[in-house]
Design a protein around this nucleic acid. Sequence first.
DNA 1: CTAGTATGACTACCATACAAGTCATATCAG
DNA 2: CTGATATGACTTGTATGGTAGTCATACTAG
Lengths: 237, 237
Amino acid sequence: MLTPAIAELWEQDAAGGSVRQRLYRVLRLAIIRMQFAPGQALSEKEISDAFSVSRQPVREAFIRLSEAGLVDVRPQRGTYVVGISQKSVREARFVREAVETAVSASAARQGLADKVIYELRDLIERQVRCASSGQYDQFFILDEDFHRVLALGAGHETAWRVIEEVKAQLDRVRYLSVPDTTPFEKLVQQHADIVDAIEQRDEEQARQAMLVHQSEILISLPQMVQRFSSIFEDANG
Amino acid sequence: MLTPAIAELWEQDAAGGSVRQRLYRVLRLAIIRMQFAPGQALSEKEISDAFSVSRQPVREAFIRLSEAGLVDVRPQRGTYVVGISQKSVREARFVREAVETAVSASAARQGLADKVIYELRDLIERQVRCASSGQYDQFFILDEDFHRVLALGAGHETAWRVIEEVKAQLDRVRYLSVPDTTPFEKLVQQHADIVDAIEQRDEEQARQAMLVHQSEILISLPQMVQRFSSIFEDANG
DNA sequence: CTAGTATGACTACCATACAAGTCATATCAG
DNA sequence: CTGATATGACTTGTATGGTAGTCATACTAG
């Protein structure tokens, strides 16, 4: 089942690198943006036929996706998009909070280059504009940019790789519903608070500001579980 | 180049799961235990011939290893064991500290089941015996067990997966030299301190005890860099 | 009608062949 | 001797055929 939206992802992808890498990027995005429903069965042949490639790179992309915790490959049975559960979201958030707060504190302790600070401020400004004009997709992209620039700017590449992985689990929930999540203005303000604390070299404040930011999803999660009880595996409905 | 030690790893592996998984486990261990030197070239064909399997599962194991940051696959060039650098060690330690301290604090906050506490105490006792009898390999295995039981006992499976990945980078350094690292008795005492704090439900103390434990490697790292300057890529020698 | 079984359509896994890029070396022109 | 070029032995990437396992369904024996 190849929806037009997924075909568009395939076409729009810059075709950089191997077929396997391109497939991974596209399938990952398709899962995060809920183009594939949780629990849905995929198959090497189905995907390879859809994109007119052989089964092998599809298979390798599946392996990579299973490492990222996005699909579950069961030998001789099939490959399934992993379900969303309250537990999995809380676990991903837990890890992300741990790493991001450490990154934020580290940035405050060691200081960031002026160029990085400027870049972060610029991203915040652009987020303000997106928030007022209601450009959801662009806002999320800028949000990811903010956290990436912060982590890499502080020299924590490995940390960013970890964040990127667990973030996928959280983004899937965010794509479920925009209105139920925290207002954009509040999120942008939290970003500003983080940069302020880092610029003032206040390590504890930087940690605390990031902690508040990373805790937001916990506020909206219960509502999401109620509204999308059919999506969440451990919902009581 | 297949050393007898590596062949032994292949034979001893329990053959659980697919050929790919078995290859991954063996090659991962071989890299961590420095059976493959940093920077050494591997090749799909070489490994497949050595273990009498086809190239495909070897290739897939390579992809997995590259995800774990243990090898670097360069298309049409070759696959190389990644080098060890002071930076990579500090980065891995940074992430591990962030996640492990969070796990320890979480365990203290929510409490652990009596069974888990007992298991941790038992592991510590066994470590004491290993320390006195100088069983290095067994000691490291018990060390890993301790951290795994703690993380999984607190319900943080995703966190453990992250720890396991970055831990590989650190274990490679540890296998370089035992005498230069922290004395076993001190490490065991730190484990005991962690469990004590958790049992007393003292969150901050648990976080602090784990922080001390995770900082140990920073003490021995400079000596290691000096002694093994030919191994470390960013050593000044 | 029920329980057991054969069947066929799937699946992922592995082996093999081919394609395409890299790089050292040998060869040959100047 | 020097430098450009062709060659061949590598490498990883992709395509495809065959193997073994799973599972739903239809069928058959009782």
